[in-house]
Write a protein that binds this DNA or RNA. Structure first.
Lengths: 226, 226
DNA sequence: ACAAAAGTGTTAAGAATACACCCATGT
DNA sequence: ACATGGGTGTATTCTTAACACTTTTGT
């Protein structure tokens, strides 16, 4: 580790892809940039990670400050995505961006936000700053694959949910329709969820049985879901 | 992005997990540390990534300088693994480590190495510095999973190879034995490899047909291999 | 009675697994 | 002739995919 010149570290930034299902559509949280570069375009919440703060701590701080989202409270699934070298992205020159993805439920983003924020459907993003559209696409692919071999959807559903709600969540993320009978059969075989004796009455039709996840921590499966 | 104090970036380091199969055993490249911390223990090749150099460029430079390995020439598969916050790892304090994995064939590590290097079987590592044993375990899991849904093994085999060699590579990485007939049937169905009319004569037994990979770039499969 | 979502089984095709013998060569 | 690794097929089980009607409720 010899350097003839003193070592100068690249700028380290953390960017977050925050997913939530709203009205059966997968949404991602965006912030409108108030400054150049890309002033007026939409971007992922992100910010500097200084020496002494871990990237995960920076993630929590930044999403809280910029979007008013408390990941610890509201997002039950968090995972690191990828680290991008973003050569000409930062005014200081070379920056490295560590990206995270988090999934939650009933996230309100405006409460304490210091910037203009909104959730936007993943399949109809507005004009995005930087390469953030690519990062969202990458995160989406990862999420799609994650829910097929883990119980990660639990982060995007209420504690008690119906099988139809569960299926709608899968359909929103996978962006395709699934067969009701096959979906239920497969999911119940996996023992990820357990039935309760409660029902959800919800309009002029038969009430639905409510289920809960057997575990609220990430379970990795050997078989795959759809 | 407001800071009351001037922004100081964490130290950025790049660490590499370099895999190679030697005598049908999966090996990883290690370097003996000549300095504290962890003097005398073995470590992954790694080093500082300064501002202005991308992490992938730093990876190439570091593996070349420290282990005499030219990744561009010798390692056909390279992928980023994970970025670790390594709080008390660097004498300067907070460091962030971007780790990469690379797979190759016939790597000689001593040619231009500036440090003492060796390949070590993944299932019998010597005393490792830092959390490097964990990083290797993580990389190994990732590699195991990668070869089951891509053609990534191509990086660890010669251009022409027999089906037995291919199976031995899988067995070395997955660390379990496979059924010869099922393995061949499945692999040939996938159209990843094509037969040649060449044979390998290799001792007192029937010569084996030589195959090549249809593509030397990463192909992602929908079906899985074993 | 009707509208609306919940709930439920069977069949056919394809994939995974388990398993044992003959073939071509060098010595 | 024998030792060595190369090469091949079938039967069973499990998984996936396709598909339509009855049930329960509110209005």
């Amino acid at each position: 580790m010899k350097y003839s010149t003193p070592y100068i570290a690249p700028t380290l930034v953390v960017d977050a892809v925050l997913f939530q299902i709203i009205d059966n559509v997968l949404n991602v949280l965006l912030i409108k940039r108030s400054k150049d570069p890309h002033k007026g375009a939409w971007a992922l919440p992100g910010g500097y990670c200084p020496s002494g703060e871990t990237t995960i701590d920076a993630l929590h701080r930044i999403t809280n400050q910029k979007a008013g989202v408390d990941i610890k409270l509201d997002m039950a699934h968090v995972e690191q995505l990828y680290t991008f070298d973003t050569v000409a992205r930062d005014p200081r020159g070379h920056a490295v961006s560590v990206t995270y993805m988090a999934c939650g439920l009933d996230i309100s983003c405006s409460r304490h936000a210091s910037e203009q924020t909104q959730f936007s459907p993943v399949d109809s993003l507005p004009k995005m700053a930087y390469d953030h559209a690519d990062i969202i696409a990458y995160a989406h692919t990862r999420l799609q694959s994650k829910i097929t071999y883990t119980n990660a959807v639990y982060a995007m559903l209420p504690k008690l949910f119906t099988l139809s709600q569960l299926q709608l969540a899968y359909e929103a993320i996978l962006m395709k329709t699934l067969d009701k009978r096959n979906f239920r059969k497969k999911f119940l075989q996996l023992n990820l969820i357990t039935g309760t004796d409660q029902k959800q009455r919800d309009g002029a039709h038969r009430p639905a049985q409510l289920f809960r996840f057997s575990s609220q921590t990430l379970q990795v499966l050997t078989r795959s879901i759809d």
